[in-house]
Design a binder for these strands. Structure first.
Lengths: 225, 225
DNA sequence: GGACACATGTAACGGGTTACATGATTTC
DNA sequence: GAAATCATGTAACCCGTTACATGTGTCC
């Protein structure tokens, strides 16, 4: 009867109101895919499991001749969900295939690396588009559960920042690589260390050799009140 | 014979030099865990598979009475890896359990939400520590494959930014929530929309009601040359 | 001589993906 | 009347995790 994070993702949705399995899958795809991506098939299975466990209740309705299953949270389900809130978090995990390609880019050409950076950028741009659509929804007051906007926007905040920083990184990196003739070392490693050092600690070595202000990166950190 | 990203992660390592399975597992844990996390057990299996497929070659050496298997890349393996570099990237995926807890925080108390933000912050701080250690390694010229520092620091760059932005977000969000008496709506949703709007587009509504400059967030974007 | 790193191995299981099937309803 | 959406279902498969076992070498 061990519950997974996916179980709680479903319970969290059910806590808001009863949903049909299909509705839930759509919501999951739209709002959860960024931080807990699962194929919608997993949802259907999880719902049946939660029903078996008594944490959700399945009820079959019919729309015309077609039937659908509506799930609602049981008191036990609500209790389980609340208890979960005070357990340790699962460490965040990132799967970023693109970085692996950069890692092995010395086997290929400079242009291949640039192409991969562009692919990454487009991937991120796609996510940004979806994120913006959600923001617009809230802005227009048309998002579901608008009365929880103060909570949900906290999550949206994270992604806005995350996507922004990732896109900036991809562009900045492409700019850097575009300035190279090839991928050979030839002095590049040392310049790279200089760059990384500047990013981490403001920019201590007085003036950088290029005069360019650290590649447009402003470390916005450490200015908390 | 379909290869997974994990296969290429291993091949990418083997492209640098031959490794024993154990060495590889250690390296994987240290350098790849951030963007392609896998239990080291998966490595051992993948290596044997690559050997079967002729993409890597296993050779048993012995150190004293203890034996170990050293794997090296075959020409076929190198070809497969190079071919992979020009295939589409796998969309990046994030699993962030903590955000799900925020999402369902209205079921709990304000303090529980703050506790979860703190757990998130500690999780990120742990990753930051590891990242810093790697940066220090490169700075000291003691990192493996220092001659590829110009490539590898591109990846490190990403994580420095990513971790920074995530930690800032966690702190800023905790600051926001700490200013609330509870988690009830009571005007908070509207203020949240205002905040999210400021973040996205500079801060158009002249001066914010609090006088505080948008919670310390400087959108560093869109200032590319 | 005890702890710790080295260096694998086996086995079970399980969450999740992919592929596919099926039909009903709505919309253009 | 065709396409898209609604609304599930079944089945195979597999990548990966967890748990555990087993022994060797090294260092203090």
């Amino acid at each position: 009867m061990k519950l997974t994070t996916t179980s709680y993702a479903v319970l969290a949705q059910l806590a808001l109101r009863p949903w049909s399995a299909y509705e839930l899958a759509v919501q999951q795809e739209r709002y959860f895919r960024f931080f807990w991506p699962r194929a919608s098939r997993a949802l259907y299975n999880e719902l049946r499991r939660l029903d078996r466990l008594g944490l959700a209740k399945a009820q079959t309705e019919s729309v015309g001749r077609r039937s659908r299953t509506v799930y609602s949270l049981t008191p036990a389900g609500r209790a389980a969900l609340m208890a979960w809130l005070s357990t340790p978090v699962v460490p965040l995990a990132l799967e970023f295939d693109g970085l692996l390609r950069i890692f092995s880019s010395p086997l290929g050409t400079r242009d291949e690396l640039l192409a991969n950076l562009e692919r990454i950028r487009r991937d991120v741009a796609g996510m940004t588009e979806l994120n913006d659509r959600i923001i617009a929804e809230y802005g227009a007051g048309q998002a579901p559960f608008q009365h929880q906007a103060h909570i949900r926007t906290l999550v949206v905040d994270f992604f806005t920042q995350f996507l922004d920083v990732t896109e900036q990184w991809a562009q900045r990196t492409a700019g850097e690589v575009a300035g190279w003739a090839d991928l050979e070392a030839a002095g590049k490693p040392l310049r790279a260390l200089d760059r990384i050092h500047r990013q981490r600690h403001g920019r201590p070595p007085a003036v950088s050799e290029s005069g360019q202000p650290a590649g447009g990166v402003m470390p916005t950190g450490s200015q908390r009140p």
